[in-house]
Design a protein around this nucleic acid. Sequence first.
RNA 1: GGCGCUGUGGCCGAGUGGCUAGGCAGAGCUCUGCAAAAGCUCGUACAGCGGUUCGAAUCCGCUCGGCGCCUCCA
Length: 488
Amino acid sequence: MQIHLYNSLTRQVEPFTPIDADEVRMYSCGPTVYNYAHLGNMRAFLFPDLLQRVLKVVGGYKVRWVMNITDIDDNTIRGSAQGSASWHPAMGEQTDDVKQNLFRYTDYFIKAFVQDLEAVGIRRSGFYEMPCATDYIPQMQDLVKRIVDAGFAYVRNGSVYFDVSSWRQADTYGHLITIDFENFQEGVRIDSDLYERDQASDFVLWKGRKPGEPYWEFEVNGEQCDGRPGWHIECSAMEAELLGLPFDIHTGGVDLKFPHHEDEIAQSKAGYGVAPTHMWCHNEFLEVEGEKMSKSLGNFFTLRDLIDKGVDPLDVRYLMFSAHFSSRMNFTFAGLEASGKARMRVQEYIYDVYEIGNNNDGDDVLEVSELRSRVFRELADNLNTARAIAHVFTFINEHPVTGIPHVWRSDLLRFFTELNDIYDVWTIGPRPAEEELLVPEDVLLMAERRFEAKKGRNFAEADRLRDEISTAGYAVKDLKEGYVIEKL
RNA sequence: GGCGCUGUGGCCGAGUGGCUAGGCAGAGCUCUGCAAAAGCUCGUACAGCGGUUCGAAUCCGCUCGGCGCCUCCA
């Protein structure tokens, strides 16, 4: 099915066609690993996961998906420095080797990050590669040199800066946003690193080494420039190395449009002579309880915070899919709970489908294939998950499983399997056998006594025992014959 | 200040000028000793004002509110 996507570059929805017919190449801006991923991060990573799955399942493409990990920047340096408050005992002892410290620090958060991704159904197997910036230093240095050689960068005190004003004479600077240069150049940009720049608008490609910080040797035109890569250069270099230029789709959060992505475009064009991609897809921000998520407001949540509260991370995944990725989303606990219930309703329906009896009243399977094309059409249309799932619920409402003819069964199962290749929040299989709950003896006994009391129409005693059982953490529910005990 | 986004029923959230998305909550009914669970039924909302139009949540203008980027935050 033809996929349509909103392109931030052209500001419209356009039909998507990969450059190479047999494989879509896609790059996503990943995390800086100095902390646990928060909910906003999860949204920014669930977006490309959804996208690559839709490309595979609905578009029928193979996908080569790369998401970078920024492991060298001010934050990771600060976090791994001697005496850092964010150094975790599990990282081991700090050594005298600052680079060693950096890697121990980032390794810890990379592992945590991958765990978090897996928890919300972003599988490691979905990626072609998750490159760390520090593994591609030579490629970055090569790109920096190319830009210098092309005349669009200059060295100043051991750092290398991109020369925006000379670039503007050669090409456009401001593809993704409209830059007001009058305002821009006079801007109050304070360079806290005390580096000199020709203009406030120039950005750093390579940062000269500072005492006590990790660095890599580098020489530019005879000048010694030992230091570390700037943030933007990482992506430009790794894209070229792992995907080749130009590739098909670049994703990231809206906040990265400027300066990060704009600078990426400028660097790649200046150094490689090619724009990285012609399709930029951005996800909007996540807000919490109607306000921007921030530590000071006390509404800042990592995925781990929620898991600690007993939240099923798959409910988080489902919740993120309930709104369009291009609109801001308001995270609330009520909404999370609603998502959990909605998700379970579909799950129950899937279980029920497995139990469809020999009902041969109908033979028309068209409705299932119509459901499939309706749902997939929405997903193909710029990933409209909200409308897609609405069709599923409409179907469920119109077709209670008890009235479904047996001939629909295999088609429904095939549909839900396909859908779950994208959503990945359900179990496609028969309802699991009633787990033998590890119900304590005394609860079993109380339940049995209650049942006897009930049979003897001693309802007061029955209710009293039910209260006692729920105090113990279990719920007893009556069936036509007998009862079941569930954990609360 | 510059650039841009946004305001939908109790909550979340789709909506391409005309055909009352969907979910959750809530209410009623059925079932039940009572509950729970389940099933059935029920919601005509689009910030305000004005305009364009046969017709506006949707287009235009203004007002009010919220938000983002311009600060190495997804």
